[in-house]
Design a protein around this nucleic acid. Structure first.
Length: 616
RNA sequence: GCCGCCUUAGCUCAGCUGGUUAGAGCAACUGUUUUGUAAACAGUAGGUCCCCGGUUCGAAUCCGGGAGGCGGCUCCA
């Protein structure tokens, strides 16, 4: 039989899942099996063993048992059973999870979660209707319900390794019992497996939590709480520089900064409709002076609508554009918090445009340009998803308005020359949107920026403007965040750069290493620092009583863009030779020498032009 | 929230099955050294072994509870 490499790898991983079950069944005969699918880079198997919890200490034992089975090169025999027969098999062998799957198969021809209504099932089922027969694979004395494909025998499964075991709800539902999910990675050859593990190790090296500590960017405190990171001076420079650029990009297009308080009466969210949606994610704030009940804001749009509604608006005033980088608070489930990617204090570079229907395209166009500029500056590739509505009737707002808006969105995207794709059914219930996917240095895609149209809040808040004919009209809101959440953006960006920030973002752009302690040198270094300050370059001097080598090392470890050793030679000549960080050192750069003021003005230039690669 | 693992000095980590005053490297501090492109030398200080409770003659180590961290809880016989 001829199989492509991919098909074969798939069959191998599938077979490994099967062998995992076989090995577990040998070790714990009472084990109940759920599903054992192939996933990215490997496979897993959901297993429930009464009164036994598998830990990573058991991996060796399970792997050994699997290797026995693999060594025996048992043939995989495929057989078919009629569904009812299969259900009887599941009952006889006491496999309740398999029984549930089989019952679903019998009923609807699919194993997709059984609590969907009939209509939904109809659209999901692969072939309309119940299946007649199901397939089984047997190796040695172990038989498992499995669609396959499998390899010919247990000896042909390549290299694998268990990485972790984790709890997983049966069929992903919180109300179901929790099973143990054994995750394995698997590849055709040992070399490929080793390569994969090596890549994992590299990713670990650039983990933003590790770098956050090493580069002194942010900290957490048990006393403050989970999911509430604190930013150090260095981390704050990153936040503020990113925010400043994100704001600048929009202020070019007439956005004005506003400010709102961080707590509000719950009435605001009752009106906006967020109360129901955010419900248990709201942090409650109780007044001790009055009987007022407040909440910490989980988003900013309702507040911004209050500013819009503070006075009558004419069609001539539109678009009204508000911009605010501010923190919102959401009480995420504690188990979902982690690093900067999932936090409870979320800072958004948020903006809202209140505009007429016919202004949507232009406004979106401007925001697209801003997004492109933003992601160019942080050196990440962007593509966008146009998320439209589908035929479902869960969407709010006039259908004609949706049509026109979706067209305008698309026109703006096409004009922006962004790489895009369209997807129906991905829209928010309140309007269509553009989701930006940014690709990082490890080829992972992240959804960061969004532009969303909103037809619902304007009417809920009874926003209006006077049209040319004097009639009251309802504006449309365009929500936009370029960075999304600054915390999440940083979690991605720190890993994207591995902590090697471009000059415009580097918390410390230049460090002077003073060779020795003398009044003349002190004076010279002071002068350099003063000039740097004048140019707005973030510079420091290392005057500690340490060897030059050691001071260079500590600068390198902090991944500083420019390190400049200043001693007698420099004092005499007034000329500096910077040591340039490897990743953007240009050939010949290290030897180049500059009068100190030139060096500093060049660095200042890189800051304002936000160029990635040095061009001194 | 649920399941599993983890928490020892500022950081990274040793500490075997419960048994003397809990260790190392780096960082800090003091002194010597005044240094030329990735770690000078010597010394000093630093610990409620995450917290609370229990078992025990004895707990960093075992048990229970709590806090914090990490991996998962979508990928579908």
């Amino acid at each position: 039989m001829h199989m492509s490499n991919n098909d074969n790898l798939y069959a191998m991983r599938h077979s490994l899942a099967h062998i995992t079950a076989a090995a577990v069944a040998r070790l714990w005969p009472e084990a109940k099996f759920g599903v054992g699918p192939v996933v990215k880079d490997g496979f897993y198997y959901d297993i429930d063993i009464p009164n036994v919890t598998i830990s990573s200490d058991d991996f060796a034992k399970i792997e050994a048992e699997m290797n026995k089975i693999i060594g025996e090169k048992q043939a995989f025999d495929k057989s078919e059973k009629q569904v009812d027969e299969a259900i009887k098999w599941a009952k006889d062998t006491k496999q309740p999870y398999k029984e549930e799957l089989l019952n679903d198969l019998k009923r609807s021809g699919t194993t997709v979660a059984s609590d969907l209504n009939a209509e939904e099932l109809g659209t999901i089922a692969e072939d309309d209707g119940a299946v007649e027969n199901v397939s089984f694979y047997t190796n040695g004395d172990f038989t498992d319900l499995c669609r396959g494909p499998h390899v010919a025998n247990t000896g042909e499964v390549g290299a694998f390794k268990f990485l972790r075991v984790a709890g997983a709800y049966w069929r992903g539902k919180e109300t179901n019992s929790q099973m143990q999910r054994l995750y394995g990675v698997a590849f055709s050859t040992k070399e490929e497996l080793a390569h994969y593990l090596e890549l994992q190790e590299q990713a670990k090296q650039r983990d933003h939590r590790k770098l956050g500590k090493e580069l002194d960017l942010f900290v957490t405190s048990d006393l403050v709480g989970s999911g509430l990171p604190l930013f150090t001076p260095r981390g704050t420079v990153l936040r503020e520089e990113l925010t400043r650029y994100s704001n600048d990009l929009r202020q070019q297009y007439g956005f004005e900064k506003v400010w709102v308080p961080h707590i509000t009466k719950t009435a605001l969210y009752e009106k906006s409709g967020h109360q129901a949606k955010f419900g248990d994610e709201l942090f409650l704030v109780k007044s001790q002076e009055t009987s007022d009940e407040f909440v910490l804001k989980p988003m900013n749009c309702p507040h911004h609508t209050r500013i819009y509604a503070s006075k009558p608006r004419s069609y001539r005033d539109l678009p009204v554009r508000y911009l605010e980088t501010t923190t919102v608070y959401r009480d995420e489930k504690t188990g979902e918090l982690g690093g900067l990617s999932r936090v409870r204090s979320i800072t958004q570079d948020d903006s809202h445009v209140f505009c007429r229907e016919d202004q949507i395209e232009t406004e979106i166009g401007n925001l697209l340009v801003a997004a492109v500029d933003m992601y160019k500056a942080v050196d990440m590739n962007l593509r966008v998803r146009l998320s439209y509505r589908d035929e479902n009737d869960t969407y709010l707002g006039d259908e004609k308005l949706w049509q026109s808006a979706q067209e305008q969105l698309k026109n703006a995207v096409v004009a922006s020359k962004l790489d895009y794709f369209e997807e129906a059914g991905e829209a928010a219930f309140y309007g269509p949107k553009i989701d930006f996917m940014a690709t990082d240095a490890l080829s992972r895609e992240h959804q960061l920026a969004t532009v969303q149209l909103d037809f619902v809040q304007p009417s809920r808040f009874e926003l209006e403007y006077a049209a040319e004919d004097g009639n009251k009209q309802t504006p449309v809101i365009i929500h936009c965040a370029l960075l999304g959440s600054i915390e999440r953006f940083l979690s991605v960006y720190i890993e994207h750069t591995g902590g090697k920030f471009p000059v415009w973002l580097a918390p410390e752009q230049m460090r002077i290493i003073q060779v020795k302690d003398s009044p003349q040198l002190n004076e010279f270094v002071d002068k350099i620092l003063a000039v740097a300050k004048e140019y707005g370059v973030r510079a420091t001097a290392d005057r500690t009583n340490e060897s030059v080598s050691k001071k260079i090392r500590s600068g390198e470890v902090m991944k500083l863009p420019y390190i400049v050793v200043v001693g007698e030679k420099e004092l005499q000549s007034g000329v500096l030779t910077p040591r340039v960080r490897q990743d953007f050192a240009v050939h010949g750069r290290l030897e180049a020498a500059y009068p100190y003021e030139n060096l500093i003005s060049s660095i200042a230039n890189e800051t304002t032009s936000r160029v990635q690669k040095s061009s001194l």
